[in-house]
Design a protein around this nucleic acid. Structure first.
Lengths: 244, 244
DNA sequence: CGGCCATTTGACACCTGTCAATGTCTGTGG
DNA sequence: CCACAGACATTGACAGGTGTCAAATGGCCG
């Protein structure tokens, strides 16, 4: 099942920065130390420090914060090709937790390895910075989602965003994608109750827009869904600036 | 009215990283090119690129995103001593707008100046990275606020957070602080309607917790407010890791 | 087959938004 | 000095979105 081909991270970064063979090799070297993690056990826990970063090779992860009253807010999901805990390794502090949603494979990256790779291949730093910046832009978009959109639009936007992200690594299209999330995950990410998530999903399904069922998201009418969600399919493509 | 003393940014960073005289000088040099901006005219507009960054010397700014339907979501507020548009200058892209809330004074910083300062005083880069990271942590906390807290708790948390931030630059205490925001600003930041903001403020005031009136936030019962909001007064103090 | 987990559904309460009107304050111009 | 406009704050009535509670259904696995 495992690929020998270029990693997904390579694939993603190459879509935005033309990396040389030397740079590509440095990038691949970072991903040698593969580890497997099982569902449920947190990779990094809120408040821990001195952690490694990871490059996700397969499986889904979510990063979240838990409140004293037990409710949690999922900040973002990580999919194959994504960095995980990049900030915590650079700053040696972590302000939220990471939980595998499926069994995952990830390459562990020490701060020293990362810095060495940057020294060898400086443009790599730019590319990684771009990736981190894209992640931050998604958190901001997530913020707008929570603050200013109704539950149905919020859901539509979220499903479309995941679709675009997955398409970047060849795991999705305008037809749909495989999605291991439960409705509880959606609830914790979108600031809704699980019951209401179910209601919204039913409504979207019955409107012929999108179907979320048994681990699969199917876009029944991609264009109408994009219109409902005011979704800009290009907002993740912060292309241009880095192409020089 | 203007201070000759060390800038507020210096003051803030010094609370977390012990900077040498050489580093302090480099930091001050960044802040020579002062400019004044008036209320209402955006500093950086959504989608623009090739912008300068700013270090805010006086006044308040908000960063926000506007949606096609006209509603807006305020992502964060910047107060004296804060960076503004740091990411857009490094990546030459801007995904949201900045609007002065009061008349402001800010120092314009070109990407080249910043990089030169980093080269001269390497630890400065760490300090600035720390500041950027703290800003990102606040956005995440903001996300949790919107997703998982009721309007009253959300408001309480927000007022306390601004208080802590202002205290770091000597502009606030547990007594309260001067606050130029209108209830519309609060609404756009907290994902509420202006009418509901008013209701919530009244409730908090009548509960004897906090009073928001005529440009002033007064903590009537700081401890109870902290308890209501589940506010961790230390979460902005990402101290420790950088002190080595 | 018997749990266990996720999904689904209905009833009901309540938090929050919307609409509309009024009050307060400040600055401007007659 | 007063009238007025405009921005912001305040209040009430009402509707609707969303949460909570509770129960039923369905699928998966030991």
């Amino acid at each position: 099942m495992d690929t020998i081909k270029p990693s997904l991270l390579t694939r993603k970064l190459s879509a935005f920065v033309a990396l040389s063979a030397h740079e590509l090799a440095a990038l691949e070297r970072l991903q040698l130390r593969r580890r497997t993690f099982v569902v449920g056990r947190d990779l990094v826990h809120q408040g821990q420090s001195k952690q490694a970063a990871y490059i996700l090779a397969s499986g889904w992860v979510c990063s979240y914060k838990t409140q004293p009253d037990g409710t949690r807010q999922i900040v973002d999901f990580q999919i194959p090709g994504d960095f995980l805990g990049l900030r915590s390794v650079l700053l040696r502090t972590s302000d939220h937790s990471f939980e595998p949603i499926t069994e995952i494979q990830a390459a562990e990256v020490q701060a020293a390895d990362l810095l060495e790779a940057f020294a060898t291949a400086p443009r790599l730093a730019t590319a990684v910075l771009w990736a981190a910046s894209r992640d931050e832009a998604m958190v901001v978009e997530h913020l707008v989602n929570l603050g200013r959109r109704d539950a149905d639009v919020r859901m539509a936007h979220f499903l479309l965003e995941m679709g675009s992200r997955l398409a970047l690594v060849g795991m999705g299209s305008q037809e749909g994608y495989d999605c291991p999330l439960t409705q509880y995950h959606l609830a914790d990410a979108l600031g809704l109750s699980a019951v209401h998530v179910n209601r919204v999903l039913r409504q979207l399904r019955e409107s012929g827009l999108v179907t979320f069922r048994s681990g699969r998201v199917s876009f029944d009418n991609y264009n109408h869904l994009v219109k409902l969600a005011d979704f800009d399919p290009d907002y993740l493509d912060l292309t241009g600036p880095l192409l020089k």
